[in-house]
Amino acid sequence: MIIEEVKKDTVIDFLKEKKRIDGRSFDEYRPITVEKNVISTAEGSARVRLGKTQVLVGVKVDLGVPFKDRQDEGILSVSAEFLPLASPTFEPGPPSEDSIELARVVDRGIRSSEGIDLKSLYIEEEKVWGIYVDIYILDHDGNLIDAAALASVAALDGLKIPKYIDGEVIRETSTILNFNPKPASFTYSKIGKDIIADASYVEEIARDARLTIAVTDQHVVALQKSGSGSFTKDEVMNLIDNSFKKRMDLLSYI
């Protein structure tokens, strides 16, 4: 706790001079790399590196039973595991509120973008495809939501949907899922009066509030504020504008 307090003070001291601790500008992301098809056993997968943060996403496609109120639609399910090997602050056990929140925010961005037509996953009465997105946090150096969202979108891009023939799931031949438009997720951290993009872990310790904005070309498709701080209406609107501007840059990594 003492070390965290010291790091926090350093971040705040740098911000007073309009600088970030790693020399980035306020809206600058760390280097991003996206590798696709990294898990041979999954129908879709991707590994994203965002600075020192690493996230792996594996997607399985399985037969499922549709929800009662959505008989003609397939299933999309997003879960997140904060693996204990990823950070000294992660503990084994049931999902934490942070991992549940992360999965649900990523889920909302993908679902609300309507880039995946869930009706296209219908097979026959009481039979649909279920897309199960599992987010594995491998190394935690901040901004897990954006890394996880980008990895999930990358893993779903080109997802193989198996064939269902005579009551059997055939995974050897498949069709490719159509996914358009794709959402891009941007998380902003407010520290004092300053707002920065893509906070590292040290910056997250110092932050007062966080706002995640997911956008497609025309629409905001998810908003999630978190942390004990606050945002003004004008700040939210400016961040929405910034997210629209940066969307294509971020998606170009996929």
């Binding site: 909302r108 609300s112 973008s113 498709v221 999630q224 504020k225 606050s230 945002f231 939210v236």
Partner: peptide, 11 residues
């Protein structure tokens, strides 16, 4: 007039 909770679902 600060916003302390903000969540959105949909388009």
């Amino acid at each position: 007039n600060e916003i302390i909770l903000l969540q959105m679902d949909g388009k």
